[in-house]
Design a protein around this nucleic acid. Structure first.
Length: 522
RNA sequence: GGGGGUGUAGCUCAGUGGUAGAGCACCUGCCUUUUAAGCAGGGAGUCGAAGGUUCGAUCCCUUCCACCCUCACCA
């Protein structure tokens, strides 16, 4: 414990962590810099080049001894007597700085010596190559742009602790370049899809996130409250019902990039807040949508990688061949030899149990039984892109009945690498049928199914005005990004995944700073 | 919710029933084209939290917290 800490222990708890000492040292450096007339947090810096540009134009800039001004974070620092080398990094690239006492003068040299890894600086000088062949900026003057108080993670070992990486994503991004790259890819994927949809005449729209009634998916919602209206509101779990209202209204192609919220378990594939894209296409059916979606994915992969092969979790996924198309009951028959097509509820339940479906599954009807068998016997094997089509009507309350068999629906889900990558229907537009499905769902709610959908009067009203035949599709953006960036956890494609609050153990940095602030005032 | 694992310095990690170590980072000194710079010296820890056993716990026991894996539930 230092003298300083013993003297100023006025807080309820004395902070004597090594981290606090490291921060104090950096505060003292700020004082020394201020004494030299340096502002630790100035307002701006005029750059002439991004660091990547200094690399691209290096030969010309070096030959002409052009003065360049760069800015970024100091990632490494090596003092060699009367010269200091430092690695400067901006968003685009990294370049070495060479600060020599003869070039900048004694004062600027000593001040640079006070800098730490993590500090943000601007530097002016000319470019050259060192004896060891490294491109370098020979600094003639420099400015401190922001003093870093908290030490960076280890310069070699990096930051690997998952909890810290998620809770302090900024530290993760500073230290792990591949993480920055993953999120850039995320943005690119969304851009590619957006451009594709726009190019095909789909209108990007926005619909309510706060809704008086939730629907459009099977999930438990988040509930909140509006004070002025004094009414309960739900965070949306899907966009479906609002986008279909827009189709009723006369738009023929609409889509939305939607943040959805589902109040359910969290794991590697689920975050309570996630992103989907939903699109609705009037006068088309689910076959049209399947072809369109297949083309969109193929285009996205090509635009992103230049080819059609994607590696995920050690496997190669090929987007070039036409995606397989299997019906749900057909794929079960292929895998087990059992044909569920014409079974009654009781027959289907018995068959499901015989095929090893777990006791705990709620096999309340034929549809649930088929789904359970399918999940057990077929789903895990769907590595290459495969459409699974024509789900039982019981598990598809918003899909139109199959034109050839009313026990099933015109619906498909796409599976890639064992993951669902989209869900689409020929949308149910018969208001009477839709009403009956809602009433069916109502019974399920009464039986304790917390994920069944409540009756939406206004949606039925909209359908009563008449909705053209329409195909609709929804797919999870996070899952698509996982697939295309070879990430196995949704948390690695969300900047700030949901985490539980920690109350014990670590002392918040703000508390350390508060005590230092208090000490400095004395 | 069940099972398994992890939690020690700012970071990455060793370790022990007798109040703790390494590398990086940090501090001091030397070094004017170095580069995981080097050399010499030094400082730094509520060993996740709370109880218990014990003469003595970071270690053993109990409970709790967070994170990871896995099964279940769930899209």
């Amino acid at each position: 414990m230092t003298e300083r800490e013993q003297t100023h222990g006025t807080n309820d708890q004395e902070i004597h962590l090594p981290l606090a000492d490291l921060i104090r040292i950096r505060r003292q450096k700020i004082d020394q810099l201020k004494a030299q007339g340096i502002t630790p947090y100035p307002y701006k810096y005029e750059r002439t080049h991004a660091i990547s540009e200094s690399h691209e134009q290096f030969d010309a800039l070096a030959a002409e001894e052009k003065v360049v001004r760069l800015a970024g974070r100091i990632m490494l620092k090596r003092k060699m007597g009367k010269a200091i080398f430092a690695d400067l990094r901006d968003v685009s690239a990294k370049l070495q700085l060479y600060v020599k006492i003869d070039n900048v003068g004694q004062a600027a040299f000593d001040n640079f010596d006070l800098l730490d890894m993590g500090d943000i600086v601007g530097a002016e000088g000319t470019l050259f190559i060192t004896r060891t062949g490294e491109r370098t900026l020979k600094v003639t003057s420099w400015e401190l742009l922001s003093k870093s108080l908290h030490p960076l993670p280890d310069k070699h070992a990096g930051l690997t602790d998952l909890e810290t990486r998620y809770r302090r994503r900024y530290a993760d991004l500073i230290i792990n370049p591949e993480v920055r790259e993953t999120f850039v890819k995320r943005t690119k994927i969304i851009q590619i899809v957006r451009e594709f949809l726009n190019a095909h005449g789909f209108l990007e729209v926005e619909t309510p996130i706060l809704q008086p009634l939730y629907g459009g998916a099977m999930a438990r919602p988040f509930k909140t409250h509006h004070n002025a209206l004094d009414i309960p509101l739900f965070m949306r779990i899907a966009d479906e019902l609002y986008l279909k209202r827009l189709i009723v209204g006369g738009y023929e192609k609409v889509w939305e990039f939607c943040k959805d919220f589902r109040n359910e378990g969290m794991d590697r594939k689920h975050n309570p807040e996630f992103s989907m894209i939903e699109l609705y296409w009037a006068y088309a059916d689910y076959h049209d949508m399947a072809a369109f979606y297949e083309e969109m994915l193929r285009h996205t992969v090509k635009a992103l990688f230049g080819g059609y092969k994607v590696n995920y979790d050690g496997r190669e996924i090929d987007f070039e061949p036409k995606f397989r198309w299997l019906t749900m009951v057909g794929s079960i028959k292929d895998a087990t030899g059992v044909d569920f097509t014409s079974m009654t509820d009781d027959e289907a339940k018995a068959a499901a149990k015989k095929l090893g479906v777990h006791e705990s599954e709620k096999l309340i009807n034929r549809g649930k039984a088929i789904e359970a068998v399918w999940e057990l016997k077929v789903e895990p094997n769907l590595i290459q892109p495969t459409f699974i089509a024509d789900h039982p009507v019981e598990i598809s309350p918003l899909a139109k009945r199959h034109r050839e068999d009313p026990r099933f629906t015109e619906r498909f889900e796409l599976f890639i690498a064992g993951q669902e990558m989209g869900n689409a229907f020929s949308e149910l537009n018969d208001p009477m049928d839709q009403l009956e499905r809602f009433m069916q769902q109502g019974k399920a709610i009464e039986q304790g199914d917390e994920e069944a959908q409540p009756l939406d009067d206004d949606f039925i009203t909209a359908l009563a005005y008449g909705m053209p035949p329409t195909a609709g599709l929804g797919f999870g953006i996070d899952r698509l990004v996982m697939l295309l960036t070879d990430q196995q956890s949704i948390r690695d494609v969300l900047f700030f995944p949901q985490m539980k609050e920690t109350k014990e153990g670590t002392v918040p940095v703000s508390k350390i700073l508060a005590q230092i602030l208090e000490d400095e005032k004395k």
